[in-house]
Every structure is written in C-alpha cells, then in structure tokens.
Deep mutational scan, measured.
Amino acid sequence: MEVRTIKVFTTVDNINLHTQVVDMSMTYGQQFGPTYLDGADVTKIKPHNSHEGKTFYVLPNDDTLRVEAFEYYHTTDPSFLGRYMSALNHTKKWKYPQVNGLTSIKWADNNCYLATALLTLQQIELKFNPPALQDAYYRARAGEAANFCALILAYCNKTVGELGDVRETMSYLFQHANLDSCKRVLNVVCKTCGQQQTTLKGVEAVMYMGTLSYEQFKKGVQIPCTCGKQATKYLVQQESPFVMMSAPPAQYELKHGTFTCASEYTGNYQCGHYKHITSKETLYCIDGALLTKSSEYKGPITDVFYKENSYTTTIK
C-alpha cells in the first residue's frame, strides 16, 4: 500500500517557510505537534488534498525554529505562539472599519479597549522592536488589523473576551517599542525636605499616572512627601515624541487643539466601556464603527496623549 502524501510549508514567522512532505494517514499533531492554519487549530486533523502548498504555523520545537521565533517575536515564552494563534482565530472574524481616516474595530468580545489602543497607536510616533509587531502594525494602518490585535493580546497575556485596560495595554506595548531616546527629568520640591531631581528613561519617561493635564504637570502637581507634608512635583525636561497622561476616570474637559487623542471610560472596574476622542479640525468621538463630532467635550476621561518633541522648564 502506497503512502499518500502532500507537500506543505511549516513556519513560526510566515517569513521562513520549511518544506514538509506530510503523510495523509496521520494527523498534523502526530507529525508536527500543535499546528495552526489561519489561526485555526488543526492539530487533530489529517492532511487533505486542499492543504497542498498551504502554510501551517507550528510551535518552535527545534533550534532553527526557536531562533526564527525569537528573532521575529522577541520572546522565548513557549506558550506565546499558541496564544497568538488562538487569538487570531477570533480577531480574523472582527470587522476593521476605516473611521475618520483611522483603522478602528467594530465592537465584539469586549474589544473596546483594543480599538482605543489601536486608534491611539496610529496617532503617536512609535516604532516597535519585534519585527512581528512592526509588520502587523503597518498592515493594521492599511486596514488589516487582525494579526496586530492578536499579537497585542498575546504580548499582554490576554484572551479574547476578557476586559482590558488601555493604560495597561499601552504599557505592555511600550515595553516592546523603541523608547531608548526618551528621557524625563522631574523635580520634587518640599518646604521641609528641599528639592530632589529624578531622571527617568524609556517607558517611565512617557507615562504618568495622577493627572490628565500635561500643562498642569509642567506647572506642578501636589504629591505627598515622605515627611508627610505636601510637596510639588513638576516637569523639568521632556525628550520624547509623545507623552501619555493618565488618571482614574473623572469628568474632564478636553479643549480642541490642546491634545492629540484621549480615552474615555464609562462604567466601573468590573464592567465598563471605552471610547476614543481625537482632536482634528474639530473633536471626534470614535466608538467602534461609530463616529460623532463636537466642538467641545466633557466626560469621564482616563488617558490623554500629547505630541511632544523637546521641553525644558522655565521655572527657576
């Protein structure tokens, strides 16, 4: 009895394709271990004539594949690729409408935090270190965002349907971005203890939790000093293409032309909904596939993004 075979390709990165001759009487799992086709788990399936010449994702289970996976995804987590594939199996079914010149995501599976993050990423200057993220990001900007969303979920250790947080998501993504040249110098002034300067680099240099107003941050924000008295913390120097200011959701007025974009969060910790506000020729609110415009805006804002380049204080 002759062994019926077909020729397929296996890959971990969709760049390096490895030619395989597979036995049609055995499952993919018996031949390769966990195997995925377009995100779908085909591990328990036997090869079919229609699979001839198709590319299958496999887990990096030998040295060659491990090197290829690390170079593309910059992670050695053995569960990463499987999590990416199972997320992709959902995100490829989502709709990605162009809204006001940006790629958004039609609401499904509690994905409003991903839509808000995706919209924000198209408006701030950011370059990702893992080629996987950078490639998928370019495709997302062009309207094909399924891979990018699935990668975000995998890097953030999230599953489809789980509630997510924009600030946490951005923080994970910033860790995989090139923020080497970003720098922030802060000064804390206390009447009792004097003053202390701190220099922050990388992710810490672009994120701040405690106030939404970048102007206020430049002037000074009140913080408790270690001595128990009130101290003032203010920005001395900022070198970065953008800054992200966050605070627990509270009524906040966004003035046209003073910011790049913002995240609105309605609801409580267990259950809520994100919308995205962007400042173009007027203010726009993007909620999944829905767009509304207004000249002014007041609502429960939790993150505001500002364009920056270089700032030095005039406070002496």
Rank of each mutant, 00 (worst) to 15 (best):
T314A: 14
Y155K: 03
R66W: 10
A132G: 11
N89M: 09
A69R: 06
T314L: 13
A154E: 03
A262P: 00
A262H: 00
F305A: 00
R83E: 05
H276A: 02
K183H: 09
P249K: 00
I286Q: 00
G210E: 00
Q238W: 01
Q31A: 10
V8P: 05
V221N: 03
L81S: 05
V22L: 15
Y306M: 01
Y284M: 10
N157P: 02
Q251S: 13
G82Y: 06
N268F: 08
S171M: 15
V12Y: 09
T260N: 06
Y73C: 04
C271H: 12
Q238T: 01
T192D: 13
A154P: 00
G288T: 00
R184S: 11
T198R: 10
T198M: 14
A262G: 02
N110T: 00
T198Y: 10
L200K: 13
A132H: 03
M26S: 11
L65Q: 06
H276D: 02
S25V: 07
T302P: 00
S86L: 09
T232V: 14
M244N: 01
C190D: 02
Y297H: 06
G82P: 14
D23F: 15
L133F: 04
F56T: 05
T10D: 06
S104M: 05
A150I: 01
D62C: 10
F128A: 02
T76K: 14
L133I: 06
C182M: 05
L17I: 07
F9G: 08
E215V: 06
V203A: 14
D23P: 09
A146G: 07
T169I: 13
T278R: 06
T258C: 08
V185L: 07
T292E: 09
L179T: 05
T312E: 15
E308N: 15
T159F: 10
T116P: 04
K158Q: 05
A142G: 13
A136H: 12
T199S: 12
F259Y: 01
C193P: 03
Y297T: 01
G53D: 10
T198F: 15
Y311M: 09
Y28I: 06
A247P: 01
C285N: 05
L126D: 01
K280G: 13
Q238S: 01
E281A: 06
D77N: 09
I6E: 06
G220T: 02
I6Y: 09
V3W: 15
L126E: 01
V166R: 02
Y113R: 03
A177C: 14
I124F: 06
E204M: 12
G228Q: 01
A154T: 07
Y274H: 00
G82D: 11
C190W: 01
E204S: 09
Y172N: 11
A115Q: 07
P248D: 07
T313R: 14
T226V: 14
K275Y: 00
R141I: 09
T35F: 06
M209W: 09
A140E: 02
T35Y: 05
S213L: 02
L37C: 12
H74T: 05
T169V: 13
C271P: 00
L254A: 01
K158N: 04
K201C: 13
I286N: 00
C285S: 07
T313K: 08
K46F: 13
H256F: 09
T43Q: 15
G220N: 01
Q196R: 14
N14V: 07
Q30D: 11
A136Q: 13
T159Y: 14
K158M: 06
L37M: 14
D23I: 11
E239S: 11
E71I: 07
N147A: 12
T313W: 08
G33M: 03
T211K: 01
R66V: 12
R139V: 08
K316W: 12
A250L: 10
I152W: 02
L59R: 10
I277V: 09
C225N: 02
Q230R: 14
P78E: 15
E215Q: 08
F128V: 01
G299Y: 00
Y137F: 15
H18G: 07
Y84I: 03
R4T: 12
T76F: 13
K158C: 01
N89S: 12
D62Q: 10
I152T: 15
E144G: 09
Q196I: 10
L290Q: 07
S25H: 10
T55L: 08
I277Y: 04
D63M: 14
Y234S: 08
Q237F: 13
T116E: 03
A140N: 04
S213A: 05
V42T: 11
Q251P: 15
A142Y: 12
A140H: 04
I6W: 08
K183L: 14
I6N: 06
S240F: 00
A231Q: 05
L235S: 01
A115K: 02
K233N: 07
L186P: 01
R141Q: 10
H51V: 07
K46N: 08
F174D: 02
V160W: 04
D303P: 00
T266S: 11
G257D: 10
I277P: 00
F259N: 04
R184F: 03
R4H: 08
Y274R: 00
Q230M: 10
Q230N: 12
Q30K: 10
S294D: 08
L212P: 02
D62E: 13
Q195H: 15
G194Q: 04
E253T: 15
T11D: 05
P47M: 05
D63S: 14
E168H: 11
Y234Q: 08
L65E: 08
T260G: 01
Q196Y: 13
L151K: 03
Y36T: 06
G202T: 02
K201R: 13
L290Y: 14
L37S: 13
T5P: 14
H90F: 10
G257H: 06
A140I: 14
D13V: 04
Q270S: 15
D62I: 13
F217S: 04
S25Y: 10
I15A: 09
Q134D: 09
H51N: 10
A115G: 05
E125M: 06
L283M: 08
C149V: 08
Y172S: 10
E296Y: 10
A136C: 07
T116Q: 04
P34Y: 08
T116N: 11
T116F: 04
H51G: 05
G33V: 05
A247L: 03
G164K: 01
S263C: 10
N129Q: 05
